[in-house]
Design a protein around this nucleic acid. Structure first.
Lengths: 155, 155
DNA sequence: ACGAGACAGTTGCATTTGGAAGGAGTACGC
DNA sequence: GCGTACTCCTTCCAAATGCAACTGTCTCGT
């Protein structure tokens, strides 16, 4: 096991890097063009909607979408002002707060969802057969899993 | 072909998103800890080093690493100030400039390389067999290829 | 040879970011 | 119970970001 990672891994990594950040740009471009929420906001709202009761502790949310703590605080500030989210104190830990999606938040997420899906579909299904997608999931999940267990980076 | 992308594609996408941005964070954390250049800078210098003569037109560089035009201008400003890069006018197009890596730029890139590789190795090879990496390359490259052909997004 | 339009790169501005420091609350050993 | 160490979230600051507007240059049709 040499100290240098294999050419294959390197190539995979670089392609991944480019492919994905391009895809994100593409999605953001389409969302802006359609005057919808940004991709970051979309991720926040979707993560909340996916959770029990549409709510999540601030830190949990930050960890899930890999936002810095301070970044999330301000993001939630903005979303609260827009009425997409409310803060709710945690009953059993007075330090803690939940972010909770509002109906309005769900609505804007839902509207944006169409665009995100369409764009993703255009990119993804042009590049990736269904079998390939299936093959990709466990690979990426093992990295994601690593992420959950690893020493956390706080902000 | 339904308007909704398949569950598999969606899962692959989400895992990818998390896995990768986590990996990048990890690398940035290690680089900062070791007092080396940031990951963005690393990408710029590496891309230049990989190119003919260690130089690239500003726009080409921006397209390659998916930076906005204005972002790249300022990035190169900083790197020039640090002595990692110089600007060189294009001989055949008076609008154009090359960014050129200096020896000093190569040196700091090389120093950072160790950390990037080690970190990547720790993440990547733990999650991905060599065969899987091989399988991943063409998939991601087809997305990257899409990116090159597609209507560009300028900044 | 001229003008409309595309393109390269930069700059201005408002917004957003990340990290470190801070205030308040909790956990736990003793 | 009390002190220390840790955690949750926010605030502060300097730095970075994106978009849109701008200057100068090239291209191409006529």
């Amino acid at each position: 096991m040499p100290h240098i990672i294999s050419r294959n891994h390197q190539n995979a990594w670089r392609s991944l890097l480019i492919a994905q950040s391009w895809a994100i740009r593409q999605i953001e471009f389409q969302l802006r063009k359609a005057n919808e929420i940004s991709f970051d906001v979309y991720e926040v709202l979707q993560t909340l909607e996916d959770s029990e009761g549409g709510k999540l502790r601030m830190s949990d949310l930050a960890d899930r979408i890999l936002f810095s703590r301070s970044g999330l605080t301000r993001m939630i500030d903005r979303l609260e002002e827009l009425g997409y989210v409310v803060r709710e104190p945690s009953p059993d830990d007075r330090r803690g707060w939940y972010a909770v999606v509002t109906p309005k938040g769900k609505e804007v997420r839902h509207r944006a969802c169409d665009i995100v899906q369409t764009t993703l579909q255009a990119i993804w299904e042009k590049s990736l057969s269904d079998e390939e997608a299936v093959a990709l999931v466990p690979v990426m999940e093992s990295v994601t899993k690593l992420a959950r267990d690893y020493e956390p980076i706080r902000g």
